[in-house]
Amino acid sequence: MSTDKTGFEVPEQMRDFAEKSVDQARKAFDDFMGATQKAVVNVEDSANAMQAGAADVNKKALTYAEEHVTAAFKFAQDLVKADNVEDMMKLQQDYLRNQMETLGEQTREFSNSATKAVQDATKAAQKK
Rank of each mutant, 00 (worst) to 15 (best):
K81T: 01
A65W: 09
F73V: 01
E12P: 04
V40C: 06
Q13E: 09
A71G: 01
F32T: 01
T63E: 15
F75E: 00
F29H: 14
G7C: 01
A65T: 05
E66Q: 13
A55V: 00
E12R: 05
K60T: 02
N48M: 15
E9Y: 01
A18Y: 09
A39S: 14
R15Q: 05
K27A: 10
T63D: 12
K59N: 13
K60E: 05
S2C: 03
Q13H: 04
D23T: 05
F73G: 00
K27I: 14
Q51N: 15
V57M: 06
T70H: 13
A54Q: 07
R26L: 15
A47N: 04
E9R: 05
N58D: 13
G7D: 01
D78H: 00
D16K: 11
S2L: 13
A47R: 07
T3E: 02
M14W: 09
A71R: 12
T63K: 08
F32H: 05
A61L: 14
D45A: 15
M33P: 01
L79M: 10
T63C: 06
E12A: 10
A76E: 00
K27Q: 11
D31F: 10
A28L: 13
F8S: 06
V57S: 04
N48K: 15
T36L: 15
R15M: 04
G53T: 02
V43W: 09
Q37Y: 10
D23P: 02
Y64Q: 10
T6S: 09
A28P: 03
A47Q: 09
A54Y: 02
P11T: 02
F17E: 04
D78W: 00
M33V: 06
Q24Y: 09
D16V: 03
K74V: 00
L62T: 14
N48W: 07
S2F: 03
V40R: 08
E67R: 07
H68N: 14
A18K: 05
K74F: 00
S21F: 15
R26T: 10
Q37K: 06
M14E: 07
A47G: 03
L62F: 13
E66S: 11
P11M: 01
F17A: 04
V41A: 11
D31A: 14
D23A: 14
V10M: 10
A54F: 02
V22G: 05
K20V: 02
E12Q: 03
